[in-house]
Design a protein around this nucleic acid. Structure first.
Lengths: 195, 195
DNA sequence: CCACGCGGTTACCCTGGAGTAACCTATGTG
DNA sequence: CACATAGGTTACTCCAGGGTAACCGCGTGG
């Protein structure tokens, strides 16, 4: 019952609203009617902008993934040495979580409710993030193992974030990022020494 | 069309088979008929042993969670100093992942497909694991922060495991556990120093 | 040898929710 | 001012799949 909107604006609005609804309730517990209601519109309108529920959901994942990826990539690129890369990278990650936290829940929240294709998409995003992290890890170990550690660090950040976000706790991305970066950096050096 | 079984045996068999099916396809993409087929039986039989699909699924989560919890708790209890606790704890975790890896996927795989109640259960299991880990972390920091770091370490192990298990890679729990424990231990000391 | 009960099956009901066909109406343009 | 069209709605169709009622037959004990 909200006023009429030009198509592209409506599309954006639907995307905005959907992130929230899906993040809160997960894919399967959210009906297209729920989304429509939240957007103040009726179902067929959704289908004018997206082919299917899947399609809408994947668009959301894709956008969220892009925001995450660019945030981290930019931060890492702006640093000179490894330690600084680690710090800026983690800070950027946690800043993204704080700013865009419905998107975080959508991708990594424990409500995820994923099916085949969404799973693939999310795995890809995780893998890409890990890929961006991998160079931080000493280059003189087997690449396979390097990737494994990278996934560990992604999981580290994810675990911390999930805990904080799902409990609705506030946090300063810079402070948190610094600490987790310290942990990661010192940890990696230890692995390197003992490996 | 398999032969008849006494009720408790059938119940066990259903549980065994279900873990695999649900782990592979997730909750929503698995129908009760799928489970029944996999068990070589028909739907009503399932309902003689479990009240609902939910009920069956929760039973699986609960069992998997227990196995994880006891494995880690036992290992940690058998150690004397903090460093050894960390090592044995991670080794036990990765051994569990390797042995019981359908259960791992069920709890933490990227297919999870959870709804309200399952989410709660899994959060509880994660929180319990974190709780078991928390004492490893220097006691002279705020408990809130201690818990956050504990969740980070759980995420670290989870991220590593998910990467390996979902790619079907083999790994030696002892070697891997030692490395990740090194990482965690050195990392925590660094946080403590700089914090 | 018969009956009874336990393990099992067939065949159904019924709801939620994805997707759509047909229709309506505000708005800006000649 | 009429009318074209983009934006929106009402009122369906249709089916996957959770859950169940009613029935079947093997095997064991009286």
């Amino acid at each position: 019952m909200s006023m009429r909107l030009p198509a592209p604006a409506r599309r954006e609005q639907i995307l905005d609203v959907s992130v929230q609804v899906f993040a809160r309730n997960g894919f399967h517990s959210t009906s297209m009617n729920d989304v429509a209601d939240a957007a103040g519109v009726t179902k067929p309108v959704l289908y004018q902008h997206f082919d299917s529920k899947q399609d809408l959901y994947l668009a959301l994942l894709e956008e969220a993934g892009n925001r995450l990826r660019t945030a981290v990539a930019k931060a890492v690129a702006s640093a000179s040495n490894g330690k600084e890369q680690t710090e800026l990278g983690f800070k950027a990650y946690f800043r993204w979580v704080a700013d865009d936290h419905d998107a975080f829940l959508l991708l990594f929240g424990s409500r995820a409710n994923r099916d085949e294709e969404s799973t693939t998409t999310i795995r890809r995003i995780t893998a890409e993030t890990a890929h961006a992290i991998a160079p931080l890890i000493a280059a003189d170990i087997e690449p396979e193992h390097q990737r494994t550690l990278a996934h560990g660090l992604v999981g580290l950040a994810e675990g911390v974030s999930r805990h904080l976000v799902e409990r609705g706790e506030l946090f300063d991305p810079n402070v948190l990022g610094q600490q987790i970066a310290d942990l990661a950096w010192a940890g990696l050096r230890a692995v390197h020494r003992n490996g």
